[in-house]
Amino acid sequence: MNGLLNYLKEIGAGIKTLLTGMRVTSGYFFSPKEIVTQKYPENRDTLKMFDRFKGELEMPHTAENTHTCTGCGICENVCPNGSIQILTHKKENEEGKLVKQLHTHIYHLSMCTFCGLCVKNCPSDAIVFNQSFEHAVFDRQKLTKVLNKPGSILKKEAKGL
């Protein structure tokens, strides 16, 4: 008799736990406010990444198309997998002296691991990460970028870094 009682108790307790679980799930079923899905391409305008989001590397330019990069090559050295290449050339400055200057700053987005060492180590704060995250392209060549091309984005206000 005791065994039978235990048997029935066991069934009752089991059913109770099952019902608690079902209450959780059906509770969510009947509360559509809890839905967390973001409708991505539609919410492009409102979707804002955080300021520090490491999207892709870029070199802010002023309105006169100048930048602060000196071509020192620290970012190239510090990059763990060689996704930055710096080409320099000798050029006369205002005083008529030949000075080493940046020619092309090549950035391989396809190899970048977004560790942030280049931005942190840059002595003249010439490169920053922007917030773009839609990197998909149909041509692999497009992932190799030249950062110091004229007409790049105007320098923004100092970031919170």
Partner: peptide
């Protein structure tokens, strides 16, 4: 993401402290 700039592979803690 707000503090380190990435969600999974942070590279945020570095020798000497934080990035």
């Amino acid at each position: 993401e707000e503090t380190c700039g990435s969600r999974l592979l942070h590279s945020y803690i570095c020798p000497g402290g934080l990035m």
